[in-house]
Each structure stands twice: as C-alpha cells, then as structure tokens.
Amino acid sequence: MAEFPQITDTTFEKEVLQSELPVLVDFWAPWCGPCKMVTPILEELAGEYGGRLKVAKLNVDDNPGTAAKYGIFSIPSILLFKEGQVATQIVGAVPKKHFVEKLDPLL
C-alpha cells in the first residue's frame, strides 16, 4: 500500500499551494469510516496520474487551521489544488469514476 505524504498546517503552504504539480488533498480523520473507503481509490489515482498529480492527505484532527480555512465541514472532502487555488472539490466517498470525470478535464 502506497504511503501518502501527510500535509500539516505548517507544510500546507509549501507542499500544496506552492507545488508545481497539481495536488489532490484528502481531508480526513481517523474517526471517519467512509474516509477509509476512498484510500484505495486515491492509490489508484496516484498511480494512473503519476507525474501529473501529487496525492496527499491532511488529518483535520491534527490540522484544524487548514480545514477551517477551506471551510471543511464534511469528510472525506477531496480538494484539487492547482497553482495555489481550489480547482475542484469532491465531498463524500464516491466511486472512482466520479474522480476521473472531475479530474480529467483539469489535468
């Protein structure tokens, strides 16, 4: 199983906002069952979009600042950041097809 980089409030600016590659950030928490459901999909996406996309995770429990800044009130929320901006957002555990449909036109 691939280990995703863990983003924190401290590293968010550098790792996500200033990243050259678009970054898909999974806002999650250990208490959230459905968050576990998207992990295998993120692993597949990381493989298929390799070189075009970085996939990372942000634990909202440990990093409430970033979660609050982006108005996260529901997890899993998966946000695509491109050049420092939110390009698209997916809320809830949805099948891979929905990710591909949203990501393809943007990558």
Binding site: A29, C32, P34, G71, S77, G92
Partner: peptide
C-alpha cells in the same frame, strides 16, 4: 459539505 451532512460519525 457546508453544514448539510448525511454522516454524523464523519
């Protein structure tokens, strides 16, 4: 996702 939710646990 902005206050409307279907999962209290999450």
């Amino acid at each position: 996702g902005k206050g409307v939710s279907y999962c209290a646990t999450c």
